[in-house]
Design a protein around this nucleic acid. Structure first.
Lengths: 229, 229
DNA sequence: CAAAATTTTGACCAGTTGGAAAAATGTTAG
DNA sequence: CTAACATTTTTCCAACTGGTCAAAATTTTG
C-alpha cells in the first residue's frame, strides 16, 4: 500500500509508457508497474534525495531492469515529479480539513493528531518532502508558491477569525502553522535522532503517543487566550 | 567566516595532507586550505547531501583542482566526517549552556533564542545536519547515540527538577527539547517553504523576529504551571 | 488463432564519478 | 643556496551514471 491514493490529476502528462495512441487509458500492467516503481522510488528518493538516488537502485528495489523501468518513466525526473505532485495533495489534506465552523481547539488538536499519524505511518513521504525542501525545492517551487501558499493564507484567515472571537490566543497564525508542521514532521524526518535520544526503553512505538500528549498540552496551554495583564 | 570555531578535537585523526612525519603540526597553507575546503564542502553537502555532492563540485567551489583537494582529504568521506564532528560540538553548545541554577523561563527562552539565531546565521550547518538525519545518520550514529543522548539525558533531568519545584508545567522533558529543536531548525531547513508561504511582504529578514515572538509566547504560555483542575 | 500492440531484455554509449600515480613546481630549514 | 620536504598539476582509470535502441518475448484484441 503506497499511499492513501487521492488520485490527483491522474492524467497529468502522458508520463507513462509510450503507446501508439497517446490518449488510450492505461492498461492493467501499466497501472501495476507504475505503482511498483513509484513505491520503490519513494523508498530510494526519500533516503538519498534526488541527486543521490540512481535509476539502478530504484529499478532493483522495484525488481525490474533499468530499461524496463525507463519504459514507464522515460526520465528520472518524471518519476520524481509524479511522486511529488501525488504527495503534495495528500500531504496537505489534513490542513485542508481544518474547519472554520468547528471549535478552535478540537480542530487544531485533530490537525496535530493527523499530522502526527502521517509522520508515523508515512515517514518516507515526509522525508521525501523534507529532502526536496532542503535542496531549495527546485522541482516544486511553483507548487509551494501558488497552491501551498493559497491554502495557508486561507487557513491563516480562519485562525485570525478565531482569535478575533477571543477563542484563541492572539498570535501569528503563519508561525503557528509552521510550528505544527515542524513539531509533527520532526518525528518522521529526525526519527533516528529521536530514537537514539529516547533510548531503547522509550524509543519504541510508544513515542508517538508520548509526542501526541506532549504536543497537545503545549499547544492547548500555549494557545489558550489569556486576560490582558 | 566558516563557523564560530570551537576547535573541537582539532587533532582527531591525521586526516590532513600526507607528510613524512605523521605528527608534525599543520603548516600555514594546510590550515588555510583545509578551511577553504571545509567551507566549500559545507556549501555543497548541505545542498545535495553526501551522495548527491561530488568532489568536483566541492573542488570548484573551493577554487582548486580535484586532485589538489584530494591531497588534503584523501577521501570524500573524510571531508564529511570532519565537517560533522566540528558541527556537532557547536550545534549543541546552546543546549549545553542551559543552566540548572538559572530560572526556567529565562533559560528556556534564551535557549530558543540562540537556536533561532543559529538557524538564521548558519542555515547551511542546520541543513547539513538535517540531511544526515534524513539519511538515517549513517556516518554519525555513534555520536548521537552516545554524546548527544548523554547531553539530552542530563538536560532532561534539569527540566524535571524544575518541574518538581513547580516552576515549570509538568510534561515530557524529552519531547519538550525535541519541540524546541524542531520549531527553531525549521526556519533553516524549510527556509524556502517559509519564505514562499509568507510571501514577499513578510518573508523578509523580519521573519526571524516574528518567529522569535511567536515561539516565546507559545513556550511561555505552554509551559507555565497550571493549578490542578 | 493470428495479427497487432505492448512489454521486457540485452547490448551499448557517452559523460561523470571517486580516486591513483607521477611528474612538476613551490617553500623552507639549515 | 640547496636539499628536503610540501604542494600542485597533468594524465589516467575503472566503475558508475542516465539514457538509447533494436530485437525478442509476451499480452491483448479482432
Amino acid at each position: 500500500m503506497p499511499f492513501p491514493k487521492l488520485n490527483a490529476a491522474e492524467a497529468t502528462e502522458a508520463s507513462g509508457a509510450r503507446q501508439k495512441d497517446e490518449n488510450r487509458p492505461l492498461t492493467r500492467i501499466q497501472r501495476e508497474k507504475q505503482d511498483i516503481i513509484l513505491e520503490a522510488a519513494l523508498e530510494v528518493f526519500s533516503l538519498h534525495g534526488f541527486r543521490g538516488a540512481t535509476i539502478d537502485q530504484i529499478a532493483a528495489q522495484a525488481g525490474m531492469s533499468k530499461p524496463n523501468l525507463l519504459y514507464y518513466f522515460p526520465r528520472k525526473e518524471d518519476i520524481h515529479r509524479r511522486l511529488m505532485s501525488e504527495l503534495l495533495v495528500t500531504w496537505l489534506a489534513p490542513l485542508r480539513e481544518m474547519d472554520e465552523n468547528g471549535d478552535p481547539f478540537p480542530e487544531i488538536r485533530s490537525y496535530i493528531r493527523r499530522k502526527l499519524e502521517m509522520a508515523r505511518d508515512f515517514p518516507r513521504e515526509s522525508r521525501l518532502f523534507a529532502n526536496e525542501m532542503l535542496q531549495g525545492a527546485p522541482r516544486i517551487r511553483e507548487m509551494i508558491e501558488v497552491d501551498l501558499k493559497a491554502l495557508v493564507d486561507e487557513k491563516a484567515k480562519v485562525l485570525l477569525t478565531w482569535m478575533d472571537q477571543g477563542k484563541l490566543a492572539r498570535t501569528d497564525p503563519y508561525h503557528l502553522i509552521f510550528s505544527i508542521w515542524a513539531t509533527t514532521q520532526h518525528y518522521a524526518d529526525f526519527d533516528v535522532q529521536v530514537r537514539a535520544v529516547l533510548g531503547p526503553g522509550r524509543g519504541g512505538e510508544g513515542r508517538f503517543e508520548d509526542a501526541a500528549r506532549y504536543l497537545e498540552q503545549l499547544f492547548l496551554f500555549g494557545l489558550t487566550p489569556r486576560p490582558k495583564s
